[in-house]
């Protein structure tokens, strides 16, 4: 009997989520009608490639926002992880496979360490994560510049950059990787204790603590996951652009937060989903792409992007309110 309950719950959620899906569909239809190239295989490949980094960052950000935190440092962590990985990959005397493996490990580890530090500092001393990660934004950026002396790291093995631009049936491999991350995150959030605790902490931290769970531990895990996704984003960045720049990813945190919020996750924590985040990232990507195809000036483009972000959140608010009173 609870399966029917689950299905009905799922259906309700689907309808609830359809709001954001409808917005996405509306944008797609609009751009398909008014531009010549929007709905072409090439362009769709482009969009998917272009949203991949933001999507990966936003998946990690979803965990942090769900526990009621925020991570302003992901753009900087991405740059730091990228230059660490870049340095590892260009170490002399390594074969391409070893170089790539070492680099990926180093990049992911660097990202995780930064995230762990964010989580530890904000959870242990109960300092708002806004402040701690604002500090990390500067620390990681400074570290990236220090490590490289502000020089771009380049000359990666050919195999690596091929991975960055390879397609499977027209779908970028890096986007498939990001989708896989979305799936894993969805599974964690809906089918593990960790996920249950993350929603619980976001809703009522005290109730979770009094039920005998370590809030500290789960907060650390959420931030570490966010750091890890910044590390993954760093690897994808390198594979796509074939360089590792210490000034990469400036402002990326805001795009990632925007994707999460547009996707219907509450900034107060406790409510939202990673599927919504996927939708949010798609909306941002479709908009950025479509407005260029439409031939709008850069400044108009920037304004419209802002307007759409606000509209998406208002729509979600309206939906939440309407949904409550029915």
């Amino acid at each position: 009997m609870d399966t029917t309950a689950n299905t009905r719950q799922g259906l309700k959620e689907l309808i609830n989520r359809a709001g954001i899906g409808l917005a996405l569909l509306g944008l797609v239809v609009f751009f398909s009608v008014f531009t010549e190239h929007f709905l072409t295989a090439n362009n769709i490949t482009n969009i998917l490639t272009q949203i991949t980094i933001n999507l990966i960052l936003a998946v990690g950000m979803t965990f942090v926002i769900l526990i009621g935190g925020i991570d302003l440092s992901v753009g900087s962590i991405m740059a730091f992880a990228a230059v660490i990985a870049g340095k590892a990959m260009t170490m002399p005397g390594l074969g391409p496979t070893e170089a790539i493996l070492l680099a990926v490990m180093a990049g992911l580890l660097a990202g995780m360490l930064c995230g762990l530090l964010n989580g530890f500092l904000s959870a242990y001393w109960s300092i708002p994560s806004f402040i701690i990660t604002l500090g990390m934004l500067n620390i990681a950026r400074g570290a990236a510049l220090q490590v490289t002396d502000a020089q771009t790291v380049y000359a990666f093995p050919k195999e690596f950059s091929e991975f960055g631009s390879s397609l499977i049936f027209g779908v970028p491999v890096v986007f498939i990787l990001a989708l896989l991350l979305v799936a894993v995150a969805w599974f964690i959030l809906n089918h593990t204790i960790l996920g249950r605790m993350i929603y619980g902490i976001g809703n009522n931290e005290e109730a979770v603590r009094l039920a005998g769970h370590s809030v500290f531990r789960y907060k650390m895990i959420a931030f570490t996951i966010c750091g890890l996704t910044a590390g993954i984003a760093a690897i994808v960045y390198m594979a796509r652009l074939n360089i590792a720049s210490p000034i990469a990813g400036i402002g990326f945190e805001l795009n990632a937060i925007a994707a999460v919020i547009i996707g219907g996750t509450s900034l107060n924590g406790g409510r939202g989903s990673v599927i919504g985040t996927l939708m949010g990232a798609l909306i941002i990507g479709v908009l950025a792409n479509g407005l260029i195809l439409l031939g709008l000036s850069d400044f108009m483009r920037q304004m419209i992007t802002g307007v759409v972000l606000i509209a998406a959140v208002l729509l979600d608010q309206y939906r939440a309110r309407y949904g409550r009173s029915t």
Partner: peptide, 8 residues
């Protein structure tokens, strides 16, 4: 405040 996670 302490007992329930109301929205869950």
């Amino acid at each position: 405040d302490e007992g329930l996670i109301l929205s869950m």
